[in-house]
């Protein structure tokens, strides 16, 4: 499967999904007003990728900022990963990065961790 990438800009995060290694990363800022449209190809790639069972996935979130609309899309991604882990023998680890002192960002990650059954690690960057 091809890798997937989006080059970030002002309100768009950098996305790099490495199909071979299973390291998937979203980084930067996300406050696109039309997150459904923006995330659609990301979700589609992920759906195709998760069609193959038994993959080992490391999902890195290195966000500086995201709006509430993006929260919704992130939850969608977590739900897919959780489902993959449960029903397709997938191994999934989430690494949630937050900038030093950005406790709001840490808290957002902790809330997602409470919401889905996936192992979360928290790191500063």
């Amino acid at each position: 499967m091809e890798n997937f990438s989006i080059t970030g800009s002002n309100y768009i995060p950098t996305v790099y999904f490495d199909a071979q290694s299973g390291v998937l990363e979203i980084a930067g800022e996300s406050y696109h007003e039309y997150t459904v449209e923006f995330f659609q190809p990301i979700i589609k790639w992920l759906r195709d990728y998760l069609a193959t069972p038994g993959r080992e996935i490391v999902f890195n979130f290195k966000m500086i900022y995201f709006n509430t609309s993006s929260s919704r899309r992130f939850l969608e991604i977590f739900d897919m990963l959780e489902d993959y882990k449960r029903s397709k023998k997938g191994k999934v680890t989430v690494n949630w990065y937050y900038q030093n002192n950005d406790f709001d960002m840490l808290e957002s990650g902790q809330e997602f961790a409470e919401d889905v059954n996936l192992p979360f690690n928290f790191y500063t960057f």
């Binding site: 002002n10 309100y11 406050y31 696109h32 007003e33 900022y65 709006n67 900038q99 002192n101 950005d102 406790f103 709001d104």
Partner: peptide, 26 residues
């Protein structure tokens, strides 16, 4: 979206504490 980006950049240049600036921006 351009206006939002421009305003966002402006907020980030205000010399306040990081956390306050991020909250104002959000």
């Amino acid at each position: 979206t351009d206006v939002l980006t421009m305003m966002g950049r402006n907020v980030k240049e205000q010399a306040e504490s990081d956390i306050t600036r991020r909250r104002i921006f959000s």
